[in-house]
């Protein structure tokens, strides 16, 4: 699995290192995203799709039971367009 190899060999996966125990949310770099749709396949619960095939994310934290899948979506995105970032502690 290429993503596994990259993770072990590099050890500095910039997208994955942000992940901590605190609440996180998914964000997409819309410039990098080319609508491959892997994230929607992996996380239909939290990633929507617009009529042109691009992912629609909201600002809500990723539920704990989906964190591992979210990490995988970040690693497996062919355009490296997904990132997990700390969700703001208080709204606003």
């Amino acid at each position: 699995m290429p993503s596994e190899r990259r993770r072990r060999a590099g050890g500095h996966d910039e997208h994955a290192t942000v992940v901590t125990a605190t609440a996180v949310r998914l964000r997409v770099d819309p410039i990098a995203c080319d609508a491959f749709g892997y994230c929607v396949e992996l996380l239909p619960e939290i990633v929507g799709l617009d009529e042109w095939g691009f992912p629609v994310l909201d600002d809500t934290p990723v539920p704990p039971y989906l964190i591992d899948l979210a990490k995988r979506a970040v690693r497996d995105c062919p355009r490296r367009a997904l990132l997990l970032e700390r969700a703001p502690s208080s709204p606003g």
Binding site: P30, I31, C33, D34, A35, D50, E51, W52, G53, F54
Partner: peptide
């Protein structure tokens, strides 16, 4: 012409 939602959304 960089982001999908803009590239496709605005013309639509």
């Amino acid at each position: 012409m960089q982001c999908g939602p803009c590239v496709f959304g605005l013309p639509s």
